[in-house]
Structures are given as structure tokens and as C-alpha cells.
Design a protein around this nucleic acid. Structure first.
Ligand SMILES: [Mn+2]
Ligand SMILES: [Mn+2]
Ligand SMILES: [Mn+2]
Ligand SMILES: [Mn+2]
Lengths: 218, 218
DNA sequence: GATTATTTTTAGGTCTGTCTAAAAAAATAT
DNA sequence: ATATTTTTTTAGACAGACCTAAAAATAATC
């Protein structure tokens, strides 16, 4: 049985080591968790003791198979609760993260599975992120940044690279949501900004935005 | 912002001072929370500091108006979540208490209200206990023990005096659940055990059981 | 009313999770 | 290869939530 704090460490390390090839550094974890490097050192020692990660002084950490399983379970709960909040309670996608951050720590296998069933086993959360199954396996649907499409190409918006509050609010304002069809009308060579068609309307977006919108692979 | 532990203390004191006329004693709280009297002394000092209760050395505590409001909010969340677990996720009424014990500490006004709306503003939880409204007011429906009824009287089962696991499991076994019509067929003068009609069947229950079943007042 | 028994509080520890400041190791620059 | 900068760890402290054992206050009994 892990404390919510321990779970947050495990989850954070899990997220940090996706993509990053090498072991996760103390400072990175500290930054992510908005705490001090010394606190991180304390905690990772304890987590290593519990066999949730492998730690070598000055060399950073990586999750053990055990730790990975734990992390996936927490992520599963987080994303299932986000689905619940949006689909059943009609929260908007920019309101659910902080609440799910609490709900992900509720301890009950049975609750998680009944919740998944109640939601009809969704495969992605409201931000397009994949939901691990009960064994911790993730079926990643290949998503590419909208910015990689050429003029005249079209695709479907499936996910977001950045799910920050500001970005979600921007998308709300522009009426951009997951599942919508997007067609690239033109790309401005000067700044790589894009003219796109969405909701049968023309919309101009910066390259930064286009890089954060993930669409279905051709 | 209170910690889950502080919230559990407040909620426990709230429950203990219902009925009990005098201030709640240190030992009673300790017993209820399965902790030591010295720990209780520590905590009630802190809660008094935060103006959630009034504490006089050796004289016990009583909740302040502030503390009462907090307590009612926690109870509201606990019982709403129990409704959710039973009505939406199809848990049985004997499985929900421990999970609600965790969920009651989730901090989000908006979540609580959206949950209440999603459940169509239930007035009682799966054990027949009243759900405070968002201002902390409770509409107590008068309930009397089945044991007070006379032969040939009938009523409806509305609540339980004791919601312990063992009692709930007993009720499951006998197929007794809230909302059912109960008719007293006969009362045995020797031990006050009762013959009752329920689900169109005859059933014999001890006086202890009859005292724990609460029915609608005549 | 003095003597017990019970309840409650205090004193002093432990464990978790955090912090700051200082020391040590590793990475980078010269 | 040395010196400097950056990262990481250690040392020591503190607050919250708990514990046991002892002391103090209150309640019960004779
Ligand atoms: Mn969290
Ligand atoms: Mn999400
Ligand atoms: Mn609780
Ligand atoms: Mn209940």
C-alpha cells in the first residue's frame, strides 16, 4: 500500500521515462513535482527499498517492472475518472485534471473495474491519452502532429501533445475538440502558420498550435 | 483546508454528539477512531485552534458552528458517493462504506454538486440515512424501530439503526432491503421475537433485529 | 471526606514528508 | 588536466500524525 505522495512520485517518473531514453534525474523529478531535489533523494531511496525503482547514486532512477505496473494502474484510474467527469458529470475537459489527481488515489480494484464497465471501457481519456488496461498494457494509437501534414491533406484530431489549462482553454475558445475532422487548406511558408478547415469554417493557427494537435496517421 | 485525518475527527465528533446531550469525551472519540486518547488530545487541541470545536481540558469537546458545517459537508459527500456506488456502479450496500470513507475526502464543491445532480438529488443513502443539503441542513424523516409496532400493524422499511457489515450481510441473506413493506404477524411474548410478512413470505426475526430495523412512523 | 479507580493530559519518541544549507560528485569549460 | 559550474547527496530541522508510559485531574466508592 503506497501513500498518495509515493504514488505521485511513481506516476511522475513513469511519465518522465516515456520517450526519455536514459534514467530519470533527481532534478527533473523535483521540477515536475514542484519540490526540492533533496526531498526527491529521500523519497527515491524509500521507493528503491520497496523495489519500485532502481536507483544508483548520482545516476538517476528507472522504474522496476513492479513500479511500472503500479504506475500504469494509477494512470488507468486517473484517465477513467477523467472520462467519468466529462462523460457522466458533464465537466469540461479543462476542469477535470485536478479532481482526477485526487481520485486516482482511491484504493479499490473493484471500484476501478466497475467504473471502467460503467463507462463502457473507454480506450482514451478526454484529452486523447490512452487508458491502460487492468494489466497495465497500453494500446498506443499512432498519432502525428498536425504540423507534419501537407497542404490539402486531411485527418481527424485524436489527441493533444500539451494538455495544459491554457491550451485547453484556447481550444475551447476556437471550438476545437477531439474527434473532429481537420483539413489543411494552406501553410504560410514565412512562419509555418496554417489555414485549416474545421466545423465547416476556416481557422488560422500558429505552428506552435499545429505541433500540439495530434491527428490520425495517414 | 483540512487533512483527511482532521476531517475524520470532525465527522466522528459530529456523529457522536447527535443524541448525546453532553460534550463528547476524549475516550469516546479515541474508541470510535480506533486510536489512543493521547492522540485525540493532540488533535482536538489543533481543531480547537482552527475554531472547528470548543475544547475545555478534562471537559470534552463540542463542534463549533463552523465545525458542524464542515462535518455536514463530509457526511453529504460520503452518502452521495454511497448512492453513486450502489445506484450507478451496482455495488451491494454492504460494500460501499469503506470506499465512501475515501471518496468523502475529495475536495471539489463543483464535483459534489454535479454528483448530486447526476444522482437526481437523493434524500437518503443506501442505508436509509439522510443526506444533508449543500448548506448542511438535514431533513430527518421520522423513523421508528420495527420492534415498537404491535401485532397486525404494517409499515415500510426506511432505515437501519446499525449498518455494520454483519447486519447488512444478514439482511442480504434474508432478502430484506429498504423500501419493502413489512407486516407484523405475531410477537412472541417470551422473547419478543417477531413473525413478519415480507416479500409475501413469513419470516421470523429476533428482537435485536427488530430494534435495528427502522420503519415509517404511523 | 479520604481512598480508589477511571479518565484525561503531558512528556517524550517514532515515522513520513518536507525544507535549507553545506558537502560531495559529476559535468563542463578553459 | 585543472578549474569552474551544475547536479546530487548529506546533515540537520520541523510539522503532522501517531505511539507508550507516567503524571495529573476527575469521578466513584467506602
Ligand atoms: Mn495525484
Ligand atoms: Mn487526461
Ligand atoms: Mn474518511
Ligand atoms: Mn451509509
Amino acid at each position: 500500500m503506497l501513500s498518495p505522495t509515493e504514488e505521485n512520485y511513481i506516476k511522475t517518473i513513469y511519465a518522465l521515462e516515456i520517450g526519455a531514453k536514459k534514467r530519470v534525474s533527481t532534478n527533473l523529478i523535483a521540477e515536475q513535482l514542484e519540490t526540492k531535489a533533496s526531498s526527491v533523494t529521500d523519497m527515491i531511496k524509500r521507493l528503491a527499498e520497496k523495489d519500485l525503482l532502481v536507483y544508483e547514486k548520482y545516476r538517476g532512477v528507472k522504474l522496476s517492472p513492479n513500479g511500472k505496473k503500479m504506475a500504469a494502474r494509477i494512470v488507468r484510474k486517473h484517465r477513467l475518472w477523467e472520462c467519468f467527469l466529462v462523460d457522466k458529470l458533464h465537466f469540461s475537459w479543462d476542469e477535470v485534471h485536478d479532481i482526477a489527481e485526487q481520485l486516482e488515489h482511491i484504493q479499490s480494484e473493484k471500484l476501478t473495474e466497475k467504473l471502467a464497465s460503467f463507462l463502457d471501457y473507454p480506450s482514451v481519456d478526454p484529452h486523447g491519452d490512452p487508458i491502460p488496461d487492468k494489466f497495465g498494457n497500453i494500446i498506443e494509437v499512432k498519432q502525428i502532429p498536425l504540423a507534419t501534414l501537407e497542404e490539402k491533406e486531411e485527418s481527424v484530431l485524436l489527441g493533444l501533445k500539451d494538455s495544459s489549462d491554457d491550451f485547453l482553454k484556447y481550444l475551447n475558445k476556437k471550438n476545437i475538440s477531439l474527434g473532429k475532422k481537420i483539413k489543411v487548406i494552406s501553410i504560410e511558408p514565412f512562419d509555418r502558420s496554417m489555414e485549416i478547415e474545421l466545423n465547416n469554417q476556416l481557422l488560422s493557427i500558429t505552428e506552435a498550435v499545429a505541433k500540439n494537435l495530434l491527428v490520425k496517421e495517414r
